[in-house]
Amino acid sequence: MPMLNKNASQTTPHRSDEPIWWSLFSAGGVCVAMLVPAITLLVLLGIPLGLVSAEQLSYQRLHALVFHPLGLGVVLGAMVLPLFHAMHRIHHGLHDLKLAHGRLAKWLCYGSAVLLSLLVLGLWFSGLG
């Protein structure tokens, strides 16, 4: 049996920053899993089956819903968190496919999620008035 590296058990490694990204990823996954089927059912089945009238999903009504203060929750749940969910998957997917796993990939992935989220939030706040 080769000598074991005794130091392996003695060095204290850095704490990972993954809990932040993983928490956003998990929250995004839950939102996607709950909202996407609901929206799909509503639009793809509800309207053709006559369960929901197209009127109820009219521009005015949806606009009022989204820009209601509670609509911010919908925007966070349907867009911002899923963005982090997707970019987390892409970031780890790049590592798995041996395409990229350095800092740059991480900055690009989470950076684009942050930028797009800011864009979404900016549009939301500018649409409030």
Partner: peptide, 26 residues
Amino acid sequence: GKIASTLDGVIQWFKPAKASRNKEQR
């Protein structure tokens, strides 16, 4: 373990006075 590690991180965050369990974050 990921949930445990996340909670551990949050707890460490709220008691900064004690020596951090892991080295400073990068």
